[in-house]
Design a protein around this nucleic acid. Structure first.
Length: 256
DNA sequence: AACATTGCCAACCGCGCTTCA
DNA sequence: ATGAAGCGCGGTTGGCAATGT
């Protein structure tokens, strides 16, 4: 059985958005809020497919978007996060308030890749181009994907992913913990890859875990930033923890 | 000035995941 | 338990602007 098309292509506009289309979309979302993208175009009087509306809103029309050049700090943050998460642009974007995954992806491909190459680093593996030739050739996705690997996929041969990353980013605190976005009540437990990639915790030898907020470690201190942990000190209940007992298979500890 | 090339970014496409009936 | 519907993500493409020849 085939997937039904996301919209009636014969009756939809494609290509660049006009000002009038933008205004219609903004007005509709202001009045009714986001959501139900499939039915939105008809309701808003737009000859666009729902996906196109969603993309236009998220990447361009949203009022909280930060337009303009990336700062040096954002550059470095993107590089570090990419080293940890790989091409998980939405996750990376989640740590850069006002930036979209599409914007970061484009910026990565046009600027940061070159920047890393000029530093002699492989943009995929974040390792020196020369020294890491064999590594990069045979395990191209290995380094960035180390956090995104299935929890129980044979990780033999490596003591822990964290130590590998610490070697590459000595100044980056790898104790990650990501709280649920306050406005996303829909999806309760995160998908496994997300949780694996997103959450971690300090784990002592006895397995005791202490959640540490990535936002705070990356400098998002205020409640106006991406992090909400400061505003709700009791919010541990919705912090996802990632526990990797030494010498054991990994397991994930969700609390909600 | 005219044409070719390169770079950038908005938008599209297809697939995977989640939800729901 | 199952499959359709809907959403979101990552990769790719198309078109415009800037730059080079």
């Amino acid at each position: 059985m085939g997937r039904s098309p996301c919209c009636e292509k014969a009756h939809t506009n494609k290509g660049a958005w006009t000002k009038e289309e933008d205004q219609r979309l903004i007005a509709y979302i202001k009045a009714h809020g986001e959501g139900c993208w499939r039915s939105l175009p008809k309701a808003a009087g737009l000859l666009r497919c729902g996906k196109s509306c969603r993309l236009r809103w998220i990447n361009y029309l949203r009022p909280d978007l930060k337009r303009g050049n990336f700062t040096e700090e954002e550059d470095e943050l993107i590089i570090k996060l990419h080293g940890l998460l790989g091409n998980k642009w939405s996750l990376i974007a989640g740590r850069l308030p006002g930036r979209t995954d599409n914007e970061i992806k484009n910026y990565w491909n046009t600027h940061i890749k070159r920047k890393l190459l000029s530093r002699g680093l492989d943009p995929q593996t974040h390792r020196p181009v020369n020294g890491g030739a064999t590594f990069a050739g045979t395990q191209q996705q290995e380094a960035p994907a180390s956090v995104a690997k299935p929890a129980n996929s044979g990780d033999e041969g490596r003591s822990s992913g964290a130590s590998v990353d610490e070697d590459r980013f000595p100044d980056l605190n790898l104790d990650l913990s990501i709280s649920l976005p306050c406005h996303s009540p829909k999806r309760s437990p995160p998908s496994e890859p997300l949780a694996r990639a997103a959450a971690a915790a300090t784990t002592s030898a006895n397995g005791y875990t202490q959640p540490i907020c990535l936002c705070c470690h990356l400098g998002f201190q205020s409640s106006s930033d991406a992090c909400s942990c400061q505003t709700n000190p009791n919010s541990q209940s919705h912090v996802y923890r990632y526990i990797r007992p030494s010498g054991e298979g990994q397991h994930i500890n969700y609390s909600s």
